[in-house]
Design a protein around this nucleic acid. Structure first.
Lengths: 252, 252
DNA sequence: ATCATACTTCGATGATAACCGAATGGTTGC
DNA sequence: GCAACCATTCGGTTATCATCGAAGTATGAT
């Protein structure tokens, strides 16, 4: 393997990239619009029934079943059977990460219907990104955390300051990952709608969990979109000085 | 958008996820084996000719041309025409990132031929990952950097220490990103073959560039694989105490 | 000018797979 | 037990698209 001359390959017609992991296989799974829409909803972090996913994708249960089987087979999803129901969710954070990174290079969708534009607005406003908060609200919170110096974006990485640690503690956010006894990780995640970073990683997840627990935010049944409750609006104003109403600058 | 009750959607048969960016579209591009193999080679960071890509993918120039046009169209690739030649490369780091993240969830390839297994070994040993170094060598270097405390892996992020700054300077690695005047970013990137992190980001890129300049490593014409020169073997031993020959523990 | 090279466009073919209707397998409730 | 429900399996239809041969365009060399 240690050579001083350039290694000339090929000669036979054999494909020279055969040794790479086969991306096309996974991509083919995501390539189908029905499956993609299921995956996007599941990227919200929820676990959903086969029938719900069928309705969301706009296909019959038979077709959905076939799709879901394939995705479970290739370890994109996991199933849990409870009685006659089957609950599906994303198989791992890696899958979520791959899906999220695809959204950053996906063509922005042109609006067709009024409904769709409303949905788009809701998504851009606030949505869950697997286990943390994204969209305008997610970015606004992150920005505030940086202004308050709870987080410092340094060299493309988030660092949690001492001020931040006590601040998050006051808020009731669990800073210890109990299973591994390690401190929370704050990872920057590029927001496809805002084109700015929001907090992901275990800190991002803990923060989102806390917001759900406080009932500041709520999931919507079959979307990634998240709604801000009146409680949340007050809480965000009180704790972070964020005026949720002002946020909604209807920038398309 | 601020509500206190759960918003019930749907009713019509319309797809409820229409507002998400269309992932399936991009995924469909990657889903084709010929296109995927082209992308994987280009993930090596090189710029290649249409004819080279055709040969690599094992298809005729006509077919390749059609594929390449689609990928340029959808902004996965960029072209540069020089005379009758057309040079293709990945369009952006985002594309590289998306491809890399797909490899982490792609099914590991089972070996077919001896050639392929040799290629797989070469790839696992050392390869370029868009702009930085990956594989056993990449991970070994990263590990050494951490042991020497040039880098600290903290909360899932790399921090460059003062020791590291002077160390990299000694090595001739450019720590200033001249265009933006910001210090280099060390981003952890999960290695699909080693399942451990190696250094990416602008520091990773600068390091790899330096290795190429020093002629420690060399690209192979139509693969992502990288070879270590005799110079490189000596240099890695001298500067980092890495025994390249020992590294090659033929773990499948 | 003429030929060779690098790449493209067009048209036809063939293979793959998404889709639904119909029927089957389990689970729950009355 | 029977009925209602959730989900799966199977078979046939249809549409999409990768592929290559043939022909065309532009560039470069002789």
């Amino acid at each position: 393997m240690i050579v001083d001359d350039i290694l000339i390959v090929d000669a036979t017609g054999e494909k020279t990239v055969g040794a790479n992991p086969d991306i096309s296989d996974v991509a083919a799974l995501i390539a189908d619009p029905s499956r993609a829409s299921m995956l996007m909803v599941l990227l919200g972090g929820q676990t959903l029934l086969a029938s719900e996913l069928a309705r969301i994708a706009g296909i019959t249960p038979q077709t959905a079943s076939s799709h879901l089987a394939k995705m479970v087979d290739r370890h994109l999803l996991t199933v849990e059977s409870r009685g006659r129901h089957r609950y599906f969710r994303l198989a791992s954070p890696e899958v979520a990460h791959a899906l999220e990174s695809l959204t950053t290079i996906a063509a922005p969708l042109k609006v067709r219907s009024l409904r769709q534009s409303d949905q788009a607005k809701a998504l851009r406003f606030a949505r869950s990104c697997y286990d943390h908060l994204a969209g305008e609200v997610g970015v606004a919170v992150t920005t505030k955390l940086m202004k308050r110096q709870w987080l410092i974006l340094e060299e493309g990485n988030f660092t949690i300051t001492d001020v931040g640690i006590s601040g998050f503690a006051d808020l009731g956010v669990n800073m210890l990952d109990l299973s591994s006894r390690r401190r929370a990780v704050a990872r920057p995640c590029l927001d496809w709608s805002e084109r700015r970073h929001h907090v992901a990683g275990s800190l991002g997840a803990a923060l989102a969990t806390r917001f759900f627990d406080l009932e500041w935010i709520r999931r919507t049944p079959s979307t990634r979109a998240v709604t801000i409750t009146a409680k949340g609006s007050a809480g965000l104003r009180q704790y972070f000085g964020i005026q949720v109403e002002d946020l909604r600058a209807d920038t398309p």
